[in-house]
Design a protein around this nucleic acid. Sequence first.
DNA 1: AATTATAACTAACAGCATTAGTTTTATCAA
DNA 2: TTGATAAAACTAATGCTGTTAGTTATAATT
Lengths: 189, 189
Amino acid sequence: MSPRPKVALELIEILDAAAEIADQFGTQEVTLANLAKKLGIRPPSLYNHFDGLGDLRKKMAIYGIERLYEVLAQAAIGVAGDEAVMAISKAYVHFAREHPGIYEATLMAPNMEDEEVQLTGSKIVDLTVRILQAYRLEGETALHAVRGFRSILHGFSSLEKSGGFKMALNLDESLEIIIKAFINGIRKN
Amino acid sequence: MSPRPKVALELIEILDAAAEIADQFGTQEVTLANLAKKLGIRPPSLYNHFDGLGDLRKKMAIYGIERLYEVLAQAAIGVAGDEAVMAISKAYVHFAREHPGIYEATLMAPNMEDEEVQLTGSKIVDLTVRILQAYRLEGETALHAVRGFRSILHGFSSLEKSGGFKMALNLDESLEIIIKAFINGIRKN
DNA sequence: AATTATAACTAACAGCATTAGTTTTATCAA
DNA sequence: TTGATAAAACTAATGCTGTTAGTTATAATT
């Protein structure tokens, strides 16, 4: 109840708490006030762990991208080709569905050009590139294809979350059809 | 400089001002304080025109969706099939590029389930459906395809804006390749 | 000409991020 | 064992935000 507690708060505990708020109530509810309340400390004390709200958002973005990467990497184990593409696609969308707050935070860094953010994000790009190597695409086509997949997955997740898909039409089925179509389209010339 | 001016402020002027702030400085800068300053009035006066920040965001979303629809509808005039799909795709991405703030506001309504927001958004969906009719897709496939196109276009625009595409690779070229691939994949063989 | 409704205003408040300065205590060196 | 240091909490205060309440001047209407 006083300065310098027995065991100090770890950054990871703070990020977990922030992620919980984000998933439960939305990213706009992860304020320093709410976060401090959840942790049982006062808002200014958070400044001992990160440099203000912008820095928290950046750290949450990196934290979220890393969690997403782990899920995708797991999904890609032991599969290849179409099966691998479908596996990571489903894993991506399911992650965004189960962790809407963390996923949203993934794109909420104050400066996405930030080196650390880019570096973490490039792990996902690299993973996708590696999976697409099965298709032996020529030249820059593979890179364009990666952009295509990321667009589809992010766009689908984003629209699903914001209620953009209103029609009574199975979402997982949509995803499967969309991914299959894009794979087939990329494959042939 | 006093109550009840000669000519009252119109809602459209307010939305234009808000859109200008959004495009120029980002949506997070369209605060009631900034908006009032730009209009030469005091923040509380804005409550005569809409019911708080949430209502402004909703009105901005509708305003943005309508402007986007106009652009897409124009792009679809006098073209059909692949050409039409490519035309509205480019128009969509260019709109998001030229009006990043307005585009972002398009998805920032407090409640995307809102009837008025859904109704405006369905105009874009309908337009896309009509264009895809050229492909004579069977059953629900057309609806899944619409979801695919929206995912690609929104995802691409969103990632481009947030700096997600880091590589030195032409963006318009990527879009063209992605759309062509998806069209080919969706077309029945 | 008198009334009414409108759209501005001022004043005040709560909640937010943030800064400055303080205090307690765990850790480490002498 | 003791003393110094640094870490991590704290209180207090500031300026910004959206918002509400109540006021006033004027355009429009009766």
